[in-house]
């Protein structure tokens, strides 16, 4: 009988792995469904997209009139990312806070008792919404700028264009994750939005020119991912720093979520 123990153990382990994968898949599906049925998510994405396209058109129109430097359509089209990040911050906050508005978190945890699985699924679902939204925002911004600028646009190489768009998309998605993590700890929408927007739009830009450590903050470091001006770090380092901030924030929010009463 001892000879049969090992295969049985392996079978059991494989079964447990399959069950774990199924649990993760189901959790992700549930989180994604919840996210996609929130009207606030759709309104935020639509509003962000509309504002980004309008800003890209305005920047391009101003650029064409100014005509000083032949700005590339890519740089002009990605410039609204600086404002569009607000939409992705709100997206992350809305996704995280929707659980706490009523008592939904208790239903969620009754259905998915493993908190780490549910937290991971929440982040993955947020990424699955944020990345396509960011692609649409960035690509349509660049396309609008290209249309408005027409022949006046400086050419951008295909490789650089792909890298810049990928950087912008990555930055927006990682920012949404960071915002979701912060909001998961704060659990209330208005304070989370106020704190995040206050950092990204007021404290961050003010510190940028005045303190050396600001280069390592997520907003300034993120400039290196998408902005033509850059943030003092190279693109690879910028990706690393912003991803590290988002991962650290997600880890903190996971630790808090696992320990705190729902």
């Amino acid at each position: 009988m001892r000879g049969g123990a090992r295969p049985a153990g392996e079978v059991r382990a494989a079964g447990a792995r399959r069950a774990g994968a199924r649990e993760a898949r189901r959790a992700l599906r549930a989180e994604l469904l919840k996210l996609l049925t929130l009207p606030a998510v759709w309104l935020t994405v639509a509003g962000t997209w509309a504002a980004a396209v309008a800003l890209a058109a305005a920047f391009a129109a101003a650029g064409r009139r100014g005509g000083a430097a032949a700005a590339s359509a890519l740089d002009v089209g990605l410039a609204p990312v600086g404002y569009a990040q607000a939409g992705f911050i709100v997206l992350g906050v809305v996704a995280a806070v929707s659980e706490y508005g009523g008592g939904q978190i208790r239903t969620t945890l009754a259905a998915m008792p493993r908190r780490a699985v549910r937290h991971g699924a929440g982040i993955a679902a947020l990424l699955l919404v944020a990345v396509p939204a960011a692609v649409v925002v960035c690509v349509s911004g660049a396309a609008v700028a290209w249309l408005v600028l027409g022949g006046a646009a400086g050419a951008a190489g295909g490789g650089r264009a792909c890298a810049a768009v990928a950087g912008a998309v990555g930055y927006l998605a990682l920012t949404a994750v960071l915002a979701g993590a912060v909001a998961g700890v704060v659990r209330r929408a208005v304070p989370a939005v106020a704190a995040l927007l206050g950092h990204y739009f007021i404290a961050g830009p003010l510190l940028r020119d005045r303190a050396a450590f600001a280069a390592w903050l997520p907003d300034t470091a993120g400039l290196g991912m998408w902005s033509a001006g850059g943030g003092g770090l190279g693109a690879a380092a910028a990706w690393g720093v912003v991803a590290a901030w988002s991962a650290a924030a997600a880890a903190v929010s996971l630790a808090v979520f696992v320990r705190r009463e729902a």
Partner: peptide, 15 residues
């Protein structure tokens, strides 16, 4: 609702 006015007004206070 606090989010919309916060977002609009804080964005508009940016540098």
């Amino acid at each position: 609702n606090g989010i919309v006015p916060l977002a609009v007004l804080i964005l508009n206070t940016s540098v």
